[in-house]
């Protein structure tokens, strides 16, 4: 028979962006160890609704680790204690009966809390809008594999493209820096032939938007990499720094935009 557990939850509750929030403590009973973290929160919300209280608001969509919605810091680690695992893919068997679990929203100036655990991550969209695109001929679809790309390059771009834009890197960073996210996006597009045309312009624009949104500066401590559910590597930040330095130098002599 599947084991169940009773838990104490300390959850951040905040009515709206403008109200001040606090931690509320709740008990949940008979949580099956096979359920996911979000299913456990669903149980809590059902309890609350039954008692005529407001359920806990949290972002979620795919529940299979690919959309990047389920942002929450669980016991001090974004997406919880399991490596390379989103909160929706985190199973309750990693917790034990009687445990107290603290659940907080991402904490960063550019990610203001909208409600409870839900934060506004639109700064990421604006970083993408400023450079996360390529110019290509519209019209009929291009033949697949029309442009040869080496296996090594394809693999590298694939690793970078694994980023789901969840924002855990910002949440984990002591400086609330968005370098891992921006690094992944820039490395992905700058390393492929299709992305070469806008390479320098893209790099400068995305970094400028990132800075303008109010993210902090990277101090190379590496907490982002540890929290990332897609194991995006610090190599992507080095790649961004490399391309940024090159773009700055080129831009100094001849404007790239």
């Amino acid at each position: 028979m599947e084991k169940t557990m009773d838990l104490t939850l300390k959850v951040w509750r905040q009515k709206s962006a403008n109200s001040t929030g606090t931690f509320e403590t709740y008990g949940v009973k008979d949580v099956s160890e096979g359920s996911s973290f979000l299913e456990m929160l669903d149980t809590l919300s059902e309890d609350l609704v039954e008692k005529g209280k407001e359920p806990v608001a949290f972002d979620h969509d795919c529940r299979e680790g690919i959309c990047g919605s389920c942002s929450m810091t669980i016991n001090g680690i974004p997406h919880g204690p399991e490596k390379a695992t989103t909160a929706c893919q985190l199973h309750m068997r990693h917790f034990h009966d009687g445990q107290t679990i603290t659940i907080e929203p991402w904490r960063a100036k550019p990610f203001p809390v909208i409600k409870d655990l839900v934060v506004d991550r639109s700064p990421f969209d604006r970083i993408i809008q400023s450079g996360g695109f390529i110019t290509s001929r519209a019209g009929s679809a291009v033949d697949a594999n029309a442009i040869p790309i080496s296996k090594a390059t394809a693999d590298y771009a694939m690793d970078a493209a694994a980023c789901i834009g969840c924002g855990a890197c910002v949440a984990a960073c002591p400086n609330a820096s968005a370098m891992l996210f921006t690094g992944a996006k820039v490395s992905h597009m700058n390393s492929l032939p299709q992305g070469k045309a806008e390479k320098d312009r893209r790099t400068l624009a995305m970094v400028a938007t990132m800075d303008g949104e109010g993210f902090g500066g990277c101090t190379n401590v590496g907490e982002c990499e540890a929290a990332c559910p897609k194991s995006i590597s610090l190599d992507m930040i080095a790649h961004l720094n490399r391309d940024y330095a090159t773009a700055q130098i080129k831009n100094f002599f001849k404007p790239v935009a």
Binding site: I77, K109, P174, F215, G216, A226
Partner: peptide, 14 residues
Amino acid sequence: ARPQGYLEDKVVQA
């Protein structure tokens, strides 16, 4: 960039 901190803040690899 981080006006409000965490109640619980774990260091994983830094």
